[in-house]
Design a protein around this nucleic acid. Structure first.
Lengths: 152, 152
DNA sequence: CGGAATCAGAACCAAAAGAGTTCTATTTTG
DNA sequence: CAAAATAGAACTCTTTTGGTTCTGATTCCG
């Protein structure tokens, strides 16, 4: 089953909370834990990962918390998912990071197609911003139209 | 990490072998095991799943084997992947089969977007046929162009 | 200055999923 | 009937995922 991990799901959920709070909204782990009904340790872990990926900035100490590192319109689903789950690539031989090598890379006849497929999927996710996620009707109408008129 | 399971990978690999053999090519488990360097039990398991999904037809008995149920141009990656891995849906609440229900389905603000994203990905995979997979340069040039001019 | 609140990072454990093998039918051919 | 092949299920081992816990560092505020 091709599916996002729960981690990535949580990441997106929490990021939309930040998006609603705006650039200046500083939210702590406990804030978000009550808002999202996720356990505090889970929220904590997730936020730390998003911070390490540069999507959130942190402020320690009393009254600390996290806030968006960039405007919600400049953060895409692709970034959030990659921050949580690692590179998006359906096949190992096409990871961005270039790790896998199946041995027949140079001559593999289907390799070229996989590259295209992977980037199609990445582009789909890179085309959705946090801002669009919190304005579903507006965002999706635009996307739906594009998809309908331009099937891959 | 968003990734195909090995099962799906094997499924695609074996299906391309059938595509090369043509509609009338009858291949047995042992044939494919030697061709693909996969273990015989693994090939066996994979082919059985593809048969159950209606992508291959089987012939039992001596000199038996499998062959394509349809023309290679009429079989898509989406079908193969769904046959092996189950429904393609990044989020549980959007499975084709309508299983998951998170409880806030009716009001979930990001639900609409996920539907769009999922179908964009499904469409990407439904747009690639087995025939295109065995003619990589031809197939991918066409797709690449579409993707470039029409980002989702 | 000291304690409380908050983030940082790593280690750890249990549950679930994935990968692969084995075993027992059933069907077909010669 | 024997051999060759698929059909289907069960089973084990490993890896991944989901989640918690523990220790340490930083900042604010009385």
């Amino acid at each position: 089953m091709i599916r996002l991990t729960k981690q990535a799901d949580y990441g997106i959920l929490l990021m939309t909370q930040f998006a609603r709070a705006g650039m200046s909204g500083l939210l702590s782990t406990t804030d978000l834990s009550t808002r999202s009904r996720l356990s505090q340790p889970m929220v904590n872990k997730t936020l730390k990962q998003l911070q390490r990926a540069g999507l959130l900035v942190s402020h320690r100490g009393v009254n600390g918390g996290y806030r968006l590192a960039r405007d919600a319109g400049a953060i895409t689903l692709e970034e959030i998912i990659e921050a949580m789950d690692g590179p998006i690539a359906l096949t190992e031989c096409h990871e961005h990071t270039g790790g896998g090598d199946c041995g027949i890379k140079a001559t593999c006849p289907t390799r070229v197609n996989w590259g295209v497929i992977n980037s199609a999927i990445r582009d789909s996710l890179a085309g959705i911003t946090l801002l669009q996620m919190i304005h579903p009707l507006l965002g999706s109408r635009r996307i739906k139209e594009r998809v309908k008129t331009n099937p891959v």
